[in-house]
Structure formats: structure tokens, C-alpha cells
Simulated scan of single mutants.
Amino acid sequence: MAEYHSIRELLEICECGNQKIWEVVMEQEAAESGLTEEQVFQKMERMYEAMRLADENYDAELRSGSGAAGGDGEKMRAYNASGKNLCSPYTSLAMEKALKMAESNACMKRIVAAPTAGSCGVIPAVVLSYEDSEHVSKEEIVQALFVTAGIGKVIAENASIAGASGGCQAEIGSASAMAAGALAYLQGGDNEQIVQAATFSLKNMLGLACDPVGGLVEVPCIKRNVAGVMNAVAGAQLAMAGIRSAITPDDTIDSMRRIGNDLPVCLKETSTGGLAVTESAKRILEKISKKSS
């Protein structure tokens, strides 16, 4: 089958074969891996099951080794239960799940890097919350994960999904774009609406610095997962409303690559700039130092 290396090529293949994005992505993976399409689908299903298990196994009592992460997912659950969250039930739940998944990563529990460990909360929060809220089938969620994989493949090939090379736009930004595409698919969006959702979400994250305090994937990374979720929801709703980006998906991804290259080293996971060198960060590091001594 024809290979795709850009969003434009992916859409062209879909159009030629009258296929959905997830079908093309699954076929491509089967061709590259030598597995059958059924085996590839089962492999993605295991990814889904790992996400679901990670969400269900969240432990509100756990704290990361630094002591800077843990327990916020439970605080968000309690706040949601109070009925005070101004967001919809779906979005409120997604915020909660994003915190829980990202905290589980910081506490060394088993997660799915989607596409990275630091951004592991975005995609699961968006798709699992949709499954729980709208009661769609597991099969549809797995299909949505193939959509995320296709978008992520193009971003990784033409830009980056690593904070060390592209800043946090490459991690939370990529995850948010991937999740937005999945959400648009789950809401019944066509192929064009799916890539428009991803484009809106990626555009909003361009230039985002990667500035983890102490080099740990905790501050500000965990809360940025929530921002990635909210951004993904916004991007999907814009696309589902029929709004189109003035900048094409591939131009947006190319811009992300150029911006990532232009970012100074201090803003690319080195913890030598941005939030990582603030007075607040210094106090956090002092606490960590005392805790380990």
C-alpha cells in the first residue's frame, strides 16, 4: 500500500481508497510490522487496556520520590463530586484523569507513553473520559487510538515528539493534537475535521517551553497535561463546528519543527531556563535536597 509521510498524503490515501484515517494507519502498521491487521488491532487494544488499568490503579496516597507530585488527582475528583466545576461532566472527568495519569508516571507506576511519558495523561484522559461519559464501545476507542498514532507518526517524522529537541510543544503539544483528532473521530467527524482538530490544537501549543524543575517530569509537566486536554477539547469543537484553520496541518507541523530548532537550549529539557530557574523552583529543589540528605 502507499505510504504517507504528511497529513496531506494521509488524506489522499484515505480519499483514494474511500477509507477512514484509522483504517489506513492500521493497514500501514500491518505492512511495516509484518503482522496481520487483526494482530495490529489486538496490539492497540492492549495499549488501550494498559491505559484503562493505569487509570483504575491510581493511588491518591502515593507521592513521587521528590515529594512534589501526588494526590492532586484525588483533589480534582473531590472537586468534581462537589458539583462546583464549571466545566461539563466530560471535561471535568478528563481533567481528573489527566492529573491521575501524569501523577502515576511521576510515582513510577505503569503508564503508556502517549507519545511520551511526560505527556502520558492527555490522550488517555480524552478517550477514556469519552468512553465513560458517552458509553461508546471499546472498539471505537481503539479505532480512535489509531487516529492518534497516525497524527503522531507524521509529527514525529516531520518535527519532533521529544522535549529535548523541540520543547514541550513537542510533548504536550503533540499529545494534545493527537487527542484532538481522536475526539473529533469519536464525535463522528470526517477525515478533514479530524486533521483540522489536530491542527488547531497544535497551533495553540507552538513555542511551549520544556522547563522541568530539577529535571523531574513533575513541575510543571503534570498540570500541563491538563492544559493539553482542555486544548484538545477546544480544537476538536472548533473543527466539529465546521471551522477550518487558515494554516494547513503540514505547514503547522513544519512550523513546530522550525520553532523547536529556534528555541534556546535552556528551554529544551535542560532545566536551565523558564520556570525551572524561578525562586519557587529553588525552594522546591531545597526541599528535595533536604529530603534526600
Rank of each mutant, 00 (worst) to 15 (best):
residue 44 M to A: 12
residue 44 M to C: 10
residue 45 E to Y: 11
residue 45 E to F: 09
residue 46 R to Q: 15
residue 46 R to S: 15
residue 47 M to S: 15
residue 47 M to R: 14
residue 47 M to N: 15
residue 48 Y to P: 08
residue 49 E to D: 13
residue 49 E to W: 10
residue 49 E to C: 11
residue 49 E to L: 15
residue 50 A to S: 13
residue 50 A to T: 13
residue 50 A to Q: 13
residue 50 A to I: 12
residue 51 M to K: 05
residue 51 M to R: 07
residue 52 R to L: 12
residue 52 R to D: 13
residue 53 L to G: 03
residue 54 A to E: 09
residue 54 A to W: 10
residue 54 A to H: 08
residue 54 A to N: 07
residue 55 D to V: 02
residue 55 D to N: 05
residue 55 D to L: 04
residue 55 D to H: 04
residue 56 E to H: 06
residue 56 E to S: 11
residue 56 E to F: 03
residue 56 E to R: 09
residue 57 N to P: 05
residue 57 N to S: 13
residue 58 Y to N: 13
residue 58 Y to C: 11
residue 59 D to T: 00
residue 59 D to V: 00
residue 59 D to Y: 02
residue 59 D to I: 03
residue 59 D to S: 03
residue 59 D to A: 01
residue 59 D to C: 02
residue 60 A to N: 11
residue 60 A to W: 14
residue 61 E to D: 10
residue 61 E to M: 07
residue 61 E to N: 08
residue 62 L to I: 01
residue 62 L to C: 02
residue 62 L to A: 05
residue 62 L to G: 03
residue 63 R to C: 02
residue 63 R to T: 06
residue 64 S to E: 00
residue 64 S to K: 03
residue 64 S to T: 06
residue 64 S to H: 01
residue 65 G to P: 04
residue 65 G to M: 06
residue 65 G to Q: 07
residue 66 S to L: 00
residue 67 G to T: 01
residue 67 G to R: 00
residue 67 G to C: 00
residue 67 G to N: 00
residue 67 G to Y: 01
residue 68 A to I: 07
residue 68 A to G: 08
residue 69 A to V: 10
residue 69 A to C: 07
residue 70 G to Q: 03
residue 71 G to V: 07
residue 71 G to P: 07
residue 71 G to T: 06
residue 71 G to L: 08
residue 71 G to R: 07
residue 71 G to Y: 09
residue 71 G to A: 08
residue 72 D to V: 13
residue 73 G to Q: 05
residue 73 G to P: 04
residue 73 G to N: 06
residue 73 G to M: 04
residue 73 G to L: 04
residue 74 E to F: 06
residue 74 E to D: 11
residue 74 E to H: 08
residue 75 K to L: 13
residue 75 K to E: 12
residue 75 K to V: 09
residue 75 K to N: 12
